[in-house]
């Protein structure tokens, strides 16, 4: 218990001190995870919407596959991307291993199925409700995708936040492909793992508290924006 108490004190101390190293780690965490969410959203949301409205052979299998991919172990995703990006691998000439870009790729791969599967579910429920109305405007199922995404934007905020949560909490994949290089690829979760390794449990826990505060902040911000937008009827 004493450890937990001192961790909170240490966490506040860290935040208040405006420590340079910590700021860089926090900044990189946010950049990597938000970028990964953005890229995964570009792929995952349209795919989810398409699966919600379209009916084609193999659709059910695709839905099952996406649902299963939600449980993809990060360390496995990391390993596959490690091998692909390694100098001895197929994309080795890009020189991306042990860079933040590799971490973005790993997280995007991890969360794209989550965004697709969850948005499919959310939008399918909406589509069941609105299908007739949309069809009456003469919109075919493919053309309904942008409309559906726009009308479902408030529900999709939660989907995006779920993806962000998974991305920012993830350690296995970014450790493998990023290498936890100080000042370059060290993020909150890998820093926590490192401090745990060094046996500095209070500092590790304090970093955990900081991470939770950041995730809380991002969620509150998204929720606030969403409510504001909803109230304006935008």
């Amino acid at each position: 218990m004493q450890d937990i108490g001192s961790a909170f004190a240490l966490a506040f101390g860290l935040i208040l001190s405006g420590d340079d190293g910590l700021a860089r780690i926090v900044g990189l965490s946010l950049r990597v995870s938000l970028t990964a969410v953005g890229i995964a959203a570009l792929v995952g949301l349209p795919l989810g919407a398409l699966l919600a409205v379209a009916r084609f052979p193999g659709r059910q299998a695709l839905v099952v596959a996406l649902n299963a991919l939600m449980g993809l172990p990060p360390v496995v995703a990391g390993l596959v991307i490690y091998i692909a990006l390694s100098r001895s691998g197929p994309f080795g000439s890009l020189g991306l291993l042990f860079t933040p870009t590799a971490m973005v790729i790993a997280q995007a791969v991890l969360i794209a199925p989550i965004l697709a599967a969850l948005s499919r579910q959310v939008l399918e429920a909406m589509w069941d409700e609105y299908a007739e109305q949309l069809r009456s405007f003469g919109a075919g199922s493919w053309r309904a995708v942008p409309t559906l995404l726009w009308d479902g934007r408030f529900l999709l905020t939660t989907v995006l936040l779920a993806g962000f949560g998974r991305a920012s909490a993830e350690v296995g994949a970014v450790m493998v492909v990023g290498g936890n290089i100080e000042g370059f690829t060290r993020v909150m979760t890998t820093a926590i793992a490192l401090e745990t390794s060094k046996g500095d449990l209070p500092l590790a826990l304090a970093l955990g508290v900081v991470l939770m505060a950041i995730v809380l902040g991002v969620n509150a911000l998204a929720q606030g924006l969403r409510d504001l937008a909803a109230r304006r009827g935008a």
Partner: peptide, 18 residues
Amino acid sequence: MFRRLFLGLGLAMATALP
């Protein structure tokens, strides 16, 4: 308003690239 959220996201992405 909602567009701005995406804009913010895009901005965060752009700064991550270089």
